[in-house]
């Protein structure tokens, strides 16, 4: 199973800022290993974020995004103590969801 994400979310003056670090190899499918064989592609394809169960972000990811992606975004709304959940799905169908309370 994939390693947990690190999520920080803080609300200020009606806007919530979210910072997410995802643990993922993000293999492009173009890299060769030490014996010269292509390393198969394996990367996050979709990222979504929900505030108290309502979607506030949906993003498509691809191979141009680095290993261990970092994503920061802001949305209108959100208050201290609300739930903020982030999920991703990758090209092999692996998934990961993590949740924090907005601070």
């Amino acid at each position: 199973m994939a390693d947990p994400m690190k999520i920080r979310a803080s609300a200020k003056e009606g806007v919530t800022e979210v910072k997410v670090l995802m643990s993922h190899e993000m293999e492009t499918g173009q890299r060769k290993d030490s014996s010269g064989n292509l390393v198969p592609a394996h990367f996050i394809t979709e990222v979504t974020a929900e505030h108290n169960g309502k979607q506030v972000l949906a993003a498509q990811f691809g191979t141009a995004i680095s290993k261990n992606p970092y994503l920061a975004f802001k949305f209108k709304g959100g208050a201290k103590g609300d739930k903020l959940a982030v999920s991703w799905v990758d090209s092999k169908g692996d998934k990961r969801s993590d949740e924090v309370l907005i601070g």
Binding site: D3, P4, M5, K6, K19, L21, M22, S23, K67, N68, Y70, A72
Partner: peptide, 12 residues
């Protein structure tokens, strides 16, 4: 620095 991936490893 804001998104230092080392923080993932720290959690692990």
């Amino acid at each position: 620095a804001d998104g230092n991936p080392a923080e993932l490893l720290e959690m692990k």
